[in-house]
Amino acid sequence: MLQSLPTWADYLASALVIMGALFALIGSFGLLRLPDFMTRLHAPTKNTTLGVGGIILGSTLYFSVSSGLSLHELLIAIFLFLTAPISAHLLAKAGLHLEYKMIKETQDLRKKPEQYSDKDD
């Protein structure tokens, strides 16, 4: 069960946890409602990562205050921040090469669009 913390740590940890949860929720909601694949890619890679980051900071604060310095959860945050751009990049590349449909508002400013496509070979 949760131990009781000093007031400032209690409020700070609560704020971090709630903010993280809200960001993750908004990110997942964006994954559900944005119109095409390339825009959907934006929501989870940024918001969910920061959401988990908030949870991790809150949990680090809780354990550090209640039972001695404990930083090892930061490893997960560092790992996520290093890997999120890579998986986003690979998925974006897949989306481009397979030529998924984009919504018609998209301003396509590529000079030679065919060099990014593998569709016909």
């Binding site: 994954l31 989870p44 991790i56 996520l80 998925l91 989306g95």
Partner: peptide, 20 residues
């Protein structure tokens, strides 16, 4: 790719649930 993205988000969210 949408499904892969959804799976990616699922694992990140479940990781956060585990931490919670």
């Amino acid at each position: 790719a949408d499904r892969i993205l959804a799976l990616d988000t699922i694992y990140i969210n479940s990781l956060a649930l585990l931490l919670l």
